[in-house]
Simulated assay, not measured.
Amino acid sequence: MKIIDKYILKRYLVTFSVMLIMFIPIGITIDVSEKVNKMIEKKIPLTDILVYYGDFTIYFANLLFPIFLFLSIIWFTSKLANNTEIIAILSSGISFSRFLRPFIYGAAIVSVFALIMGFFLVPKASKGFNDFRYQNLKGNNKTRETSDIFRQIKKDGKLEENIYVSNYNYLSQTGFNFTYERFYDNVLVEKVTANRIRYNEISKKYTLYNYNKRLIGEFDDRLLKSDKIDLTYNFEPDDLTPVVYVAETMTIGQLNSFINKERERGNGNINTYLVVFYKKFSLPVSAFILTIIAVAVSSMKRRGGMGVNLAIGIVIAFVFIFFDKVFGTLAEKSSIPPFIAVWLPNFVFGILAVYLLRNAKR
C-alpha cells in the first residue's frame, strides 16, 4: 500500500469515526432531555440507565450508519478538493480509478464491521433498547401488547394445530381469550379455551385459567374443566410477540432458524422476518455504493465550496434512507418479494454510482 493509499484510508476511517463520536452524543442528549422526567419519576437505577444508553449508542449508530458514512466521505473529500490535493494527485499521473482504490479499502473495512455488528451486536442492543423503553418510559405495559394473534403451530400431514389469543403482553408474558384447536384431515377433533394463559420461565409450561377442553368424538364429546392447570404446548412466547421486534433481536443464526420454522408453519407474516434478514446483508453492501457516490459528487472543486457538496450529500443520503424504508414497508404489507424490495435501493443507487463515477472521471 502506497503513501497516498494510507493517507486517504486514514482520513476515511478517522473522519467516519469522528462523525459517529460527534453525532451520537447529540442523539443521547436529545433522548435524555425527552425522558429525564420519567426516569426521575420512576426512580430508575443509574446502572440501568447506563446500560440503556450503551444499547442506544449501538442501535442509533446502526440506524443512521448510511448517513454518517456518506457525510463523512463528502466532508473530507471536499476538503481534499478545496485544497487542490485531488488535482495534484490526478496531475501526477494517477487515474481516477486508482485514486478511488483506498476509498474501496475503507468501505470494505466499514462493511465487515457493519456486518459483524448486524449479525451479533445490534440484535442484543435492539432488545435492551426496546425493553427499557417499553418497560420504563412508555407509561404502561399496554404498549407492548399485540392483538388478534393467530398462529399455526404444527402442520404434519393430515394433522394441524392452531392457536389464537385476543391480546398478548410481552412483558408479563400473558395472553387473554386463548384458543387451541387440533384438526385431523380438516376435521376438528380437539378444542381448548381459557380466559387467560401465562408462560412460566422456570417450568417452561403454560398456566391456563378457566380451562375448558372439548374432545370431539364420532358420536359424542367429552368435556374437561379446571379453574387452573399447567400444560406444555408446541409454541414459544416469542411466537406471540410483535413481529418486527422479534426479528430485530435475533442473531443471524437464530433468525435463519426462526424463519425456516415459521415458513413450515405457514406464517403469513414471513415477509417481515425476511426483510430484517436481507437488510443484515444489504446494509454493508450499501457502504461501497455510498462511498463511490460520495467521492464522485465531492471530488470536484465547486464555486460554493464544501457547503454545496454537503447539501447534495444530505439530499442523496436522505433519499436513499427514504427508498430503503418505503420498499421495506411495501415488502411487509404487499406482494413484493422481500429480496427485491430490500435490494432495489442498492440496485438503483448502484446505477447512479456508475453514472456519477463516469462523469467524475471525465
Rank of each mutant, 00 (worst) to 15 (best):
K204D: 08
K205D: 04
Y206E: 08
T207M: 00
T207S: 08
L208N: 01
L208V: 09
Y209H: 05
Y209A: 07
N210V: 00
N212S: 11
N212A: 15
K213Q: 13
K213M: 06
K213R: 14
L215F: 11
E218I: 15
F219S: 14
D220E: 08
D220K: 00
D220A: 01
D221H: 07
D221Q: 09
R222E: 15
R222P: 09
L224H: 11
K225F: 02
D230E: 09
D230N: 11
L231F: 12
L231C: 11
L231I: 15
T232N: 09
T232Q: 00
Y233E: 05
N234R: 04
N234V: 02
F235D: 00
F235T: 05
E236S: 15
P237K: 01
D238A: 14
D238S: 09
D238F: 08
D239L: 07
L240T: 08
L240I: 10
L240H: 04
T241L: 15
T241R: 14
V243I: 07
V243M: 09
V243E: 10
V243K: 04
V244W: 07
V244N: 01
Y245C: 05
Y245K: 01
Y245I: 01
Y245W: 08
V246R: 06
E248C: 01
E248I: 05
M250V: 11
M250K: 15
I252Q: 03
Q254L: 02
L255I: 12
L255Q: 04
L255R: 03
N256S: 12
F258Y: 15
I259E: 06
N260H: 01
N260R: 14
E262K: 12
R263E: 13
R265Q: 15
R265I: 13
N267W: 10
G268V: 12
N269H: 09
N269I: 03
N269D: 04
I270D: 02
N271R: 10
N271M: 06
